[in-house]
Design a protein around this nucleic acid. Structure first.
Lengths: 328, 328
DNA sequence: GCCATTTGTGGAATCGATACCATATTTATC
DNA sequence: GATAAATATGGTATCGATTCCACAAATGGC
């Protein structure tokens, strides 16, 4: 590999001068600069980022820890992140946990060893061990999707969004509403969305039958199964179902259709996500748009600002908007 | 930051000894090792990957260049890549071109400057400039989705898959078949899939009306528009449509449904991709499964083997299988 | 008990850049 | 024309690891 030393020799200057020319720091004469530029042009030399960052303590790399790339949410967020980061010369180093919590901790260490300038964590929980590790890290970290004390974050307003969805169903005349959620250690998707639902139901003094509430995991099949349980176990059938993600809703819809139940006439369906798919299933799904790409951009902006000034931690809360289609 | 020097001091040994203990190279006494382990345990020290790779010339990072992360194809491939790479301690550095060809070249340089151990390129073309640069790079590169001379690759059998799809439609009794394709500089998706279609049609001496063939770009909307053109411009309507991607098919279906045409009774629909969505649109889409995750794994395996032995370039061609559902 | 291995350890060079400092030359100021 | 400031350049230390080499101590074989 070509090094600065060889470039210096070829341009008949010292390494210092080449370095100065490269970084536009200090003084370099017209002539020297011209010769250096030409040599670089001819050889296609590019300085080693390795060596550079060993010296400068900056890598221009941001680590991104995510539970999976195979969801639209994740890929939209990453797109948003990349859009903003690449503009500032940063690249993304991926760390995929495959939904294993312990890996989040492992990757935080690994990314530190790789000296990333910042970390973005698409979080699935806010457990103490995680938060402690983040604070011990001394590297800017921004959480997406979960809010936590002392850690910067970009979150969706899960509680209010959930209330609004519930209110929308009630307004449409529904009184018996079922709920398909996920594990509550996921504070945002599991706990807050559920709480929003229950609080809004309570505010309208509507009761929720126990069998109407099912816990699923993050895939379509799981939504299907949850819907099956709701239909087969409940004494009185609900007239609407609130699923916390589009995929769960799609799974639930497939069960309903298979069993001859019409949507929305027999059972209405609503969810959160605004995935591409939600638009093309039949009927088109009424869903809450969380603007994941924007979330990525905001998180990227924040991590960049934290790199410049680590003291300015913020909790950005994003807006949501309901996309009304045909499933309610 | 903690360095090997400090660890050495704390354990009362030299840096050399710590390094040997860390890498299990050379001799280290029981006692010394014990003290070192303890200090590392207490301090949570992790060696700087920066410094390490400056010396060893290995980064354990693989660069992945892709046209977009927002397609299922891409995210499945990345999942497959990560699955295999992470098992061997490699991480992925993302480079998103947003479908801009020139960026592929730029990123190749950038990744070289970052000294990645290998590069995986989810390619959209096989132009000379690209191939030349790849060969000049002296870094293992594996192409996914496009085959090219002198470059390792993992490809789908686009030509044959396309023929099989066409044959399937013909076998089902269709004679007037429309085709929604993409730009032919994309050799695999654009050129080969089209050629497979035309060759198979010709083999059955079936003619393809000019207006039945439309060029679209890679999104749902574009499929919608292409379908509109086919319906409104053709003198005799086709009885089946072959779209080169699921998204295009979904867009086409949405046009057909909006205009009261029944699928498959009036017009049958078939495509390539086996996306999650294809299963839940109405009617469920008959589509060709390309096993993208497997492609990622194979590409990862190949890049790892090229790192070990750069001479063993291969062109792996993957199998496909038709998933027959309700749209034909 | 002597010589040859094996085992254990530290010193110093090195990877490829940056950055500080000293020094030389040119230009400006009065 | 002397002095100060601006411009230009190279030498050298440094970042944090690995690795080679020299050397010392322990072990073994006869």
């Amino acid at each position: 590999m070509l090094t600065i030393k060889e470039i210096a020799a070829m341009a008949k200057v010292s390494r210092s001068t080449v370095s100065r020319a490269l970084n536009n720091s200090g003084y370099v004469s017209e002539e020297a600069r011209k010769r250096i530029d030409q040599v670089i042009e001819e050889t296609g030399y590019a300085p080693s980022e390795q060596a550079k960052s060993l010296r400068t303590k900056k890598t221009k790399v941001i680590g991104v820890i995510l539970p999976t790339i195979q969801t639209e949410t994740a890929s939209k967020i990453v797109t948003g992140l990349d859009k903003e980061l690449s503009q500032h010369g940063y690249q993304i180093l991926l760390a995929n946990t495959n939904l294993e919590k312990e890996k989040e901790l492992e990757f935080l260490d690994l990314l530190k060893a790789r000296q990333v300038d910042g970390i973005i964590l698409i979080a699935t929980n806010t457990e103490q061990a995680l938060l402690q590790k983040i604070n011990a890290l001394k590297i800017p970290v921004v959480l997406i999707g979960q809010e936590a004390e002392d850690v910067a974050s970009v979150t969706y307003n899960d509680y209010h969004a959930s209330m609004e969805i519930t209110a929308f169903l009630i307004e449409k005349g529904h009184q018996r509403i079922a709920f398909i959620g996920v594990d509550e250690t996921d504070r945002a998707v599991g706990y807050l969305r559920k709480k929003g639902f229950f609080d809004e139901m309570a505010a309208h003094t509507l009761i929720v039958e126990e069998n109407w509430v099912q816990r699923a995991v993050f895939d379509i099949d799981s939504g299907h199964q949850a819907m099956e349980k709701i239909i087969t176990n409940s004494t009185e059938k609900p007239t609407a179902v609130f699923a916390v993600t589009d995929r769960l809703a799609v799974g639930a819809m497939s069960y309903l259709k298979q069993n001859g139940l019409r949507i929305p006439e027999d059972i209405a369906m609503i969810s959160i996500g605004a995935s591409e798919m939600s638009q093309y299933v039949d009927p088109a799904l009424t869903t809450m748009d969380y603007q994941n790409e924007l979330a990525g951009e905001k998180a990227a902006k924040q991590v960049l600002s934290l790199i410049a000034d680590p003291s300015g931690k913020k909790n950005v809360v994003l807006d949501y908007r309901l996309i009304i289609r045909d499933s309610v």
